[in-house]
Amino acid sequence: MALQGKAWKFGADVDTDAIIPARYLNTSDPAELAKHCMEDADPEFPNKMQPGDIIVADKNFGCGSSREHAPIAIKAAGVSCVIAKSYARIFYRNAFNIGLPIFECAEAAEAIEEGDEVAVDAARGIVKNLTKNETYQATPVPEFMQQIIDAGGLIDYVAKRLRPTDQA
């Protein structure tokens, strides 16, 4: 999958209530959650972003609650990936589990400006700023996380483990 789009910048400590406010958590329907993605950080975000666009944020992205609805909302909105200086640990794990690509890259988080066209080579963790003609290297993904990605997400990983003969 090509990860490419326009960068939307956010600050430090973007919390899960900002990503998807609890008032919308009476459903877990991805399409519904997508309508309110990042709403309390930027009310216009769901309307102005285009599929493929990239969220670029400072440190501790996704802090707060364990709600998986946060990465689900981002993914369902069509955001191709998130680049941040660092992530809160539950968000980090959830993003991998549900298949939202995320990259830890302080250099990219500093250098990329809102509106820059950005492309990411997910396999090698290379972030390219097409507007500024720069490249940045993201922190490599822990091997164990990579195994989950290769299996197609945590559920497929577990399903394979529990039903090793079932190749379907």
Binding site: I90, R93, I155, L162
Partner: peptide, 17 residues
């Protein structure tokens, strides 16, 4: 704390990473 998918896996396995 973990997310829902981690919970689902642990409900099946009784284990987690």
């Amino acid at each position: 704390g973990v997310g829902s998918t981690d919970l689902a896996a642990a409900m099946a396995l009784g284990e987690t990473w």
